[in-house]
């Protein structure tokens, strides 16, 4: 008896209709997907994306090669080499971040005494060769130069909570 009942129920395609009901109901609801890259989702000012090295308004790089970020980095993603610059200050000769090692924890930014290394809200990047995962000081500074406006805006927004 039970067998016959199940047979007719399956012939009536009830499950299918129930599923289609859900599908059709979504046709009238607002869409979650966006048309990337023309459209972008809003990003929090605290988002921790790819790194950048900042400069002072006079163009001088902020980083003083204190290596606190290198020391605090839990993934050992940062490599720094430093030397004495002619004006008597310590500056980096090499500042590299391995983006494959990085876990985007933000400790480097937390530890920086001069707000030099930051994690920007930019996260839409890719690389085609494995070797490109290591970003150099020049790339980091260029990133800082390009995004300075956004970086300082985000930092100002968060200042009240720090």
């Amino acid at each position: 008896m039970k067998k016959i009942f199940r047979y007719f129920k399956s012939m009536a395609l009830l499950e299918l209709l129930r599923g289609m009901k859900l599908t059709f109901s979504h046709m009238f609801k607002p869409k979650f997907t966006i048309r990337f890259p023309e459209e972008r989702t809003p990003v929090s000012n605290r988002f921790r994306g790819v790194h950048a090295l900042r400069r002072y308004p006079n163009g001088e790089e902020r980083c003083i090669a204190c290596k606190l970020c290198e020391a605090v980095c839990p993934a050992l993603a940062i490599t720094i080499e430093s030397e004495l610059r002619d004006d008597g200050t310590r500056r980096t000769t090499k500042y590299e971040i391995d983006l494959f090692k990085c876990i985007y924890c933000g400790f480097c930014e937390e530890s920086c005494p001069v707000d030099s290394i930051v994690e920007t809200n930019f996260h839409q990047y890719h690389m085609e060769n494995a070797s490109e995962r290591i970003i150099t000081k020049e790339q980091l500074l260029a990133m800082g130069d390009r995004m300075e406006e956004q970086i300082s805006k985000d930092r100002r927004k968060d200042a009240a909570y720090r």
Binding site: A65, C66, A71, S82, L84
Partner: peptide, 9 residues
């Protein structure tokens, strides 16, 4: 040696 390394490294 000045500024070439930090003690903890």
């Amino acid at each position: 040696f000045r500024f070439s390394a930090r003690a903890w490294e």
